[in-house]
Amino acid sequence: VRQEELAAARAALHDLMTGKRVATVQKDGRRVEFTATSVSDLKKYIAELEVQTGM
Rank of each mutant, 00 (worst) to 15 (best):
G19A: 02
T18Y: 07
A36S: 12
L16D: 01
Y45W: 15
R30A: 10
L49E: 00
L6G: 01
T35A: 06
V51M: 15
I46K: 00
L6E: 02
E50T: 06
Q52K: 13
I46Y: 00
T37S: 14
V1L: 12
E48Q: 11
E33Y: 07
D28M: 01
V51H: 14
T53E: 13
A12F: 02
R31Q: 14
H14E: 11
T18I: 09
S40A: 13
G54E: 12
G19N: 05
M55T: 15
A47V: 08
H14K: 10
G19Q: 03
V22K: 08
V39M: 14
Y45T: 03
Y45C: 05
T37R: 05
E5D: 09
A47E: 14
A11L: 09
R21I: 14
R31H: 11
A9P: 00
E48M: 09
V39Y: 03
R21Y: 05
E4F: 10
A12W: 01
K27I: 15
K20F: 04
E50A: 06
G19L: 00
V25M: 05
G19R: 02
A12V: 04
R10G: 02
S38A: 08
K27F: 06
M55C: 12
M55Q: 15
F34T: 03
V25T: 04
L16V: 03
Q3P: 09
F34I: 07
E50Q: 06
V51I: 14
V25W: 00
Y45G: 01
T18N: 14
G54F: 02
M55L: 11
T24I: 14
S40G: 15
V39E: 04
L16I: 09
R21L: 15
H14C: 12
G29Q: 04
A36V: 12
S38V: 05
A23E: 03
A23G: 06
K44G: 06
G54S: 11
L49C: 01
T18E: 11
S38M: 15
A7N: 13
D41L: 09
A8T: 07
T37G: 11
S40V: 10
A8K: 09
R31D: 15
L6H: 02
A12S: 03
R31A: 15
R30V: 15
A9Q: 00
A23R: 03
L13K: 00
R31G: 09
L42W: 01
V22W: 05
K27S: 06
L6V: 04
G29M: 04
V51C: 13
L16W: 02
I46G: 00
E4N: 11
G19M: 00
T18L: 10
H14D: 08
Q3N: 12
R31I: 15
R2Q: 12
I46S: 00
L13D: 00
M17H: 06
E4R: 12
F34V: 06
K43T: 07
T35P: 07
Y45P: 00
E50L: 07
Q26V: 15
T53A: 14
L49H: 01
Q26G: 06
A11F: 02
T35N: 11
K20T: 10
G19P: 01
V25K: 02
L42P: 00
A23D: 03
D15C: 07
F34C: 06
A23P: 03
D15K: 07
E50H: 04
T37A: 15
S40Q: 14
Q26K: 09
K27A: 07
V22M: 09
V1W: 08
A23F: 00
E5I: 10
L13A: 01
T35V: 06
M55G: 14
K43Q: 12
Q52N: 11
V39A: 06
R2P: 12
A36W: 14
T37K: 09
L6F: 02
R10A: 04
D15R: 05
A12T: 02
T53C: 10
T24A: 13
V22Y: 06
F34Q: 03
K20V: 11
A23N: 02
V32R: 05
D28C: 07
G19S: 03
E33K: 06
S40L: 08
A7F: 08
E33H: 06
E50C: 05
A47C: 10
A9K: 00
V39H: 03
A23V: 15
G29S: 04
A47L: 12
G29T: 03
R10S: 04
Q26C: 15
R2W: 14
V32E: 08
K27T: 07
Q52H: 11
V22P: 03
Y45Q: 03
R21K: 14
R2Y: 13
Y45I: 09
L6R: 01
Y45N: 02
T53I: 15
A47N: 09
I46N: 00
A9D: 00
K44S: 10
M17E: 12
E4T: 10
A7Y: 07
D28L: 01
V32N: 04
A36P: 14
D15V: 04
M17F: 04
M55R: 11
R2N: 12
L13P: 00
V1I: 13
T18D: 09
A7V: 11
R30G: 08
E50I: 08
Q26Y: 10
Q52W: 07
K27Y: 04
G54R: 09
M17C: 11
K27P: 03
T53R: 07
L16E: 01
T35F: 10
Q3M: 14
M17W: 02
K44H: 08
Y45R: 03
Q3W: 14
Q52I: 14
T53K: 06
S40N: 15
A8F: 07
K44P: 00
M17K: 06
Q26L: 14
A9N: 01
V39F: 05
A23W: 00
V1K: 13
D28K: 04
E4M: 12
M17I: 08
T37Q: 13
T35Q: 07
D41R: 04
L16P: 00
R10L: 10
K27L: 11
M55A: 13
L6C: 03
A9C: 06
D15E: 12
L42Q: 00
S38F: 03
E48D: 10
A12Q: 02
S38I: 05
K44I: 10
A8H: 07
A11I: 09
R10M: 09
D15Y: 04
L16M: 03
A12K: 01
R10T: 05
K43P: 01
D28V: 02
Y45H: 05
A9H: 03
R21T: 15
E5G: 05
Q26M: 15
T24N: 07
E48K: 06
L42A: 00
V51G: 11
L13N: 00
R10E: 04
L42E: 01
A8V: 08
T24F: 07
A7R: 12
I46P: 00
L49V: 03
K20D: 06
H14A: 11
K44E: 12
E5V: 08
V32I: 13
A36H: 13
D15T: 04
V32C: 08
V1R: 13
A8N: 10
R30E: 12
A23L: 01
Q3V: 14
M17V: 09
S38W: 01
K43R: 12
R21N: 12
T35W: 08
L13M: 05
G54I: 06
G54A: 06
A47Q: 12
L6S: 01
F34M: 05
H14F: 06
V25D: 03
E48L: 10
K20H: 12
D28E: 09
A11G: 07
A8E: 12
V32Q: 07
A7I: 11
A9Y: 05
D41G: 05
T53P: 09
L16S: 01
T24V: 15
S40D: 15
K20M: 11
V39G: 02
V25S: 03
Y45S: 02
D41K: 06
D15W: 03
E5S: 08
A47H: 13
R2A: 13
L42F: 01
V39L: 15
V22T: 13
V39S: 04
A23C: 06
E50F: 05
T53W: 11
V22R: 06
Q26F: 08
